[in-house]
């Protein structure tokens, strides 16, 4: 179960997507999301779907990995789909019973909403799958650097983020260990009603929290021992450099957004 959590994981590779500057990828994700929310009709959705599939194919991230990452979100996706299905009015009525009215417009909205969420998740997952967390936070820090002028703690925020990402696998491993230990003593995590299962998780969460705090304490000491003293005067081993492919990618992103906006205007 816990092995399925792939959020924030990084799958090393050497494709062009992997080699893009993290800043480029961050900007592209924002552009991608904007385009996704601008798209309104079938044709523009088709274009977005095509682009998404193309990126997935180029990045060599297997579809299995992507779908596995989406598993925990299945409920939210279904919920949104169902809500849209029943609560959209307009179009011809297909089905009418008690308080349930399904219209052609409702079906369309539901399908589109689900596809939109799936693409949204794929796009953002691709970012973390193809970018090492360090590169990602470095990129974010550089992009947001201007905000330092108005005293926003950008460096601290990006450090917190990279530490959080760094500890995801460690904490997952630890959770697995605690679960096994408790299972060995007869704890039951799989059966029972929702409330019972939630209760069963409590003895899992307490030791996990305690150990997370202990880890944080030790980590802080280890960081201080290695001369960490905030972002001031810090250098980087891996300098980020925008290459030709980055500009090309940004240009393509802008073109995509422009295309979707035009299609939106023309109702396509």
């Amino acid at each position: 179960m816990l092995k399925d959590i792939t959020i924030g994981q990084y799958f090393p590779g050497n494709t062009i997507i992997h080699r893009l500057d993290p800043r480029t990828k961050l900007i592209l994700v924002v552009v991608y999301i904007a385009a996704l929310f601008t798209a309104r009709e079938w044709l523009s959705y088709g274009v977005m779907l095509l682009v998404t599939c193309a990126i997935v194919a180029v990045s060599r991230i297997s579809v299995r990995t992507l779908t596995r990452g989406m598993k925990p979100l299945v409920f939210i996706i279904c919920f949104t789909g169902v809500l849209n299905l029943f609560y959209t009015t307009g179009g011809t009525t297909l089905f009418d019973w008690w308080i349930f009215h399904v219209t052609t417009e409702g079906v369309k909205r539901a399908v589109m909403m689900v596809v939109r969420i799936l693409m949204l998740i794929s796009g953002t997952f691709l970012l973390t799958y193809t970018t090492s967390p360090m590169a990602l936070t470095d990129g974010l820090e550089l992009l947001l650097n201007p905000l330092k002028k108005i005293h926003v703690p950008i460096h601290e925020m990006s450090m917190v983020m990279s530490m959080a990402l760094r500890f995801i696998p460690t904490l997952i491993e630890e959770t697995d260990k605690i679960m096994s230990a408790q299972r060995a003593r007869g704890a039951d995590f799989e059966t029972g009603k929702l409330l019972e299962r939630a209760k069963a998780l409590l003895p899992l969460l307490v030791p996990l929290f305690v150990s997370a705090f202990r880890r944080a304490d030790e980590l802080a000491i280890a960081m201080e021992s290695r001369c960490y003293h905030g972002g001031e005067g810090r250098t980087r081993m891996k300098q980020l450099r925008m290459a030709g492919r980055d500009w090309l990618a940004l240009f393509s992103g802008a073109a995509l957004l422009a295309l979707i906006i035009v299609m939106n205007v023309y109702g396509l």
Partner: peptide, 28 residues
């Protein structure tokens, strides 16, 4: 320190080793 997991700060070995010199502002 004792626990190796709690003193490694990066997700890639070489990035972790680079942490201290980066903090010290050493040239790339």
């Amino acid at each position: 320190f004792q626990n190796p997991d709690n003193q490694i700060v990066a997700n890639v070995v070489e990035d972790d080793v680079a942490f201290a010199p980066e903090n010290l502002g050493v040239e790339p």
